[in-house]
Design a protein around this nucleic acid. Structure first.
Lengths: 197, 197
DNA sequence: CAACTAAATTGACCTTGGTCAGTTTAATGA
DNA sequence: TCATTAAACTGACCAAGGTCAATTTAGTTG
């Protein structure tokens, strides 16, 4: 039974992503045309849609990889020792997601869909983020910085949903009081991660 | 100079909305086809797009009208006398917006666009909501229920953005602890509308 | 009423994301 | 080397939202 060609497929996929990244950086996401991608990659349109569920799925992979890079940095920075440090760690990721409406909308759509529909890279980055938050929260609970009446996993899931969703606040609240997403989100994050009574 | 035919146009618009409401109630929003709407209304496709910016703009008008109905009810209930009452007043509106992912996504898109792009009905309902919140918050500040270090208008705008945006939390947090949008949002709303120290 | 003209509408056409039955490619076993 | 067959790819085709130059409708004026 013939098996595992694979190599050619992986090359095609890589080429598609490469061309996509290039075109997005020039024309932005809404200016990205599937036809241009397949032309640039030298494949047929059907090939693209055999690799990615839809146009969004294509960009989702790029964004997922980008988010992974942020997570690398965050983990490299070590476990935060205070709530304030935790919030500060979030800043780069928040800025990134809030920096482009398209990215935010895309994450919004994907995080709302069920696991099977979501692209693997996005799913992975979600779970990894949740793991990181949970570890940090557990450490902060140990240190008496965060209330202990909720399991770290639960809080982490909430924060994860929160981060991927709520940056919309910032898009709407063009208030002089909030110049960064983190500032806009701070009161809510602090409420969630309240210190023990 | 010939002027103000108007009447025919208003009739056309009303017919389009009527057919749209009917079709949406049967097929849902994503199942709604512009072609079906214009066929049902007995007009050409171009006519629809001269009345509404795009397909979303069409539904936005219907949703705006619906939101107005909620606001009528809220105002009829009078000024709340406690933070808890304020939160309870929000429940029906929250349930409505959170009840249909499409409605939420649409509000998200529209509230993010600039005033001129946004349909008049949506814009109106936003301003009206902000006015209502501001009035309520001012009353609660008077009563010593809410912190006084923020102007009611500012808090109201924040809440408005919040309500239209943050229900996404609920879509993602399918936690047994939060069975309604209001429960999911409560900690955040309470943080925002904190009592005076 | 007839001419005039802005408002309103038309519908052929376009763009673009997405599909799928059919074709090509290449790993495997004899 | 050659037959086999699953993997990979193709591209004609479709669906559906959106455009706009051309046309029709109907107030207004003389």
């Amino acid at each position: 039974m013939p098996r595992q060609p694979q190599k050619r497929r992986l090359e095609t996929r890589a080429k598609l992503l490469e061309v996509t990244a290039e075109l997005v950086s020039v024309h932005g996401y809404s200016g990205l045309k599937v036809d241009d991608v397949v032309t640039g990659a030298g494949v047929a349109k059907g090939t693209l849609f055999s690799h990615f569920r839809d146009k969004d799925g294509l960009l989702a992979v790029l964004i997922g990889a980008e988010v992974m890079r942020f997570l690398d940095e965050m983990e490299a920075a070590g476990i935060p020792e205070s709530r304030e440090m935790l919030l500060q760690r979030l800043a780069p990721l928040l800025d990134y997601v809030a920096g482009d409406r398209v990215i935010f909308d895309l994450l919004l759509r994907y995080s709302g869909s069920t696991g099977t529909e979501t692209d693997e890279v996005i799913t992975e980055s979600f779970y990894r983020q949740i793991g990181i938050w949970a570890g940090w929260i557990a450490a902060l609970q140990e240190a008496g910085e965060v209330r202990r009446d909720c399991a770290p996993d639960f809080l982490a899931e909430g924060i994860q949903a929160f981060l991927n969703q709520v940056i919309a606040i910032w898009f709407c609240m063009a208030s002089p009081n909030t110049t960064t997403p983190l500032e806009a989100l701070r009161p809510f994050l602090e409420a969630w991660l309240a210190p023990p009574d």
